[in-house]
Design a protein around this nucleic acid. Structure first.
Lengths: 138, 138
DNA sequence: TCTAATTCCTCTAGCAACTAGAGGTGCAAG
DNA sequence: CTTGCACCTCTAGTTGCTAGAGGAATTAGA
């Protein structure tokens, strides 16, 4: 069994964040030692790594809860879970599309900033200029 | 002169957000009408468009404040503005790469889900597994 | 073995970047 | 002239944490 500090060390998730995740329902309520300290099994390392990687990909905790609910019911038929995965896939595709717009916008800005003065700098100008940006706003 | 509502309409930035930006030092304290209502000049439309566009590109308010202060010194080199954009570009590229990893995992999961069980899916596994993730952590 | 440093506990409060609501004033149209 | 909207200030809520207070327990070194 792992203390919260060991769990933190093995996953890179900070101790207060682990406690926060517990409050937020991302982690099951752990066992306690006789002196009231949290004790975690090895499965929690996996679960925390999963949460951390998903967070790094930009998933909100709610979406991660959905994904975790898949792995919490490994014997369930995929029919019910398929919808969740599809929704996540569509969300990921939308994120990628948007980020690729932003990427080319940033590249364009940088290429136009060829070591000149700010008065000639296209970075600031293009950030003001809506027509050139290629990002859709309503 | 524009009321806060007109300014909001012309820029797409919500009224409470404009007031928030004022508190946050992103916008100069505006004139007031005799009845205490905010009045904005045309320059504020430009400034707000700049802020909104920068936010949509993922710049934090602090970086936008830096960019705004740079644009007040037009004779300096634009290297600093370029550097801020470079940092954003690198962050965006990293996110795209990770999301594409996840996208193919989700696609694989959905295709494997044809009649199978969740326990055979590799999404959770690949998101838990540090070695496969392609992202560097410390 | 004793002590000092560390880890753990709970709790509250703060961060960014807003958003929503309460409760009140002003202004323009029917 | 009154109704209805836009505006005002202020507080509080949101998400996903992070930092600190104040206190108990465990571990490491002399």
């Amino acid at each position: 069994m792992l203390s919260i500090g060991k769990l933190s060390g093995q996953t890179g998730v900070k101790v207060p964040t682990i406690r926060y995740y517990e409050d937020a329902g991302m982690l099951p309520v752990p066992e306690r030692s006789p002196s009231n300290q949290r004790l975690y099994g090895a499965a929690t390392v996996e679960r925390l790594n999963f949460i951390r990687h998903s967070r790094e990909l930009g998933f909100p905790l709610e979406a991660i809860r959905d994904l975790l609910s898949l792995s919490d019911k490994p014997d369930q038929s995929c029919a019910a879970a398929d919808a969740i995965a599809q929704v996540q896939l569509r969300a990921v595709e939308a994120r990628i599309a948007r980020l690729q717009n932003l990427k080319s916008e940033l590249e364009r800005m940088i290429s136009q900033c060829a070591g000149g003065k700010i008065s000639e700098c296209r970075v600031i100008e293009s950030l003001s200029d809506h027509d050139q940006c290629g990002v859709e706003h309503k």
